[in-house]
């Protein structure tokens, strides 16, 4: 029986998303997550990571980002914790994409999708950095 928890520590570079998605795929396969659930979790993680890497992490610092997934009977809980400066991705200004218009703000569309796809989102500042908790119902 595979551990219901998946923990991965990532460096602050977008190529790490590929490594994470491979681990996520194995986790999803093992726990028989539906394609809808695993797609939503992958997208939410990538959008949050890219936002954190673009805005939260400083170029001259070696930041690390810790990702933790936990499968319960009815949900998958996802945590993203970094050691970067204050950055709350949920406060990014978003608006519903107007039909036929290219979403203006880089990042805004990503957060819009995360809010649509995940069932609960919570941000808090910790002693270490930023912690984002997301829940996807099964």
């Amino acid at each position: 029986m595979m551990n219901p928890v998946l923990e991965v520590t990532l460096e602050s570079k977008t190529s790490e998303c590929t490594r994470l998605s491979e681990k996520l795929e194995k986790f999803a396969e093992h726990h028989r997550l539906s394609s809808e659930v695993s797609y939503a979790i992958r997208l939410a993680l990538e959008e949050i990571l890219v936002n954190t890497m673009s805005y939260g992490c400083c170029e001259d610092l070696v930041n690390t980002i810790h990702v933790r997934l936990r499968k319960t009977d009815k949900t998958v809980e996802v945590e993203v914790e970094d050691d970067a400066a204050f950055f709350n991705p949920l406060e990014a200004v978003i608006s519903e994409p107007a039909h036929g218009k290219v979403p203006e703000k880089e990042g805004g569309l990503g957060i819009f999708l995360v809010k649509k796809l995940m069932d609960d989102l919570k941000y808090r500042r910790t002693e270490k950095g930023n912690l984002l908790q997301m829940v996807k119902k099964l």
Partner: peptide, 13 residues
């Protein structure tokens, strides 16, 4: 199989 928001923006553009 998959696109995130960055890919989606390319289709919009």
């Amino acid at each position: 199989e998959y696109t995130g928001s960055a890919g989606l923006r390319e289709f919009f553009l």
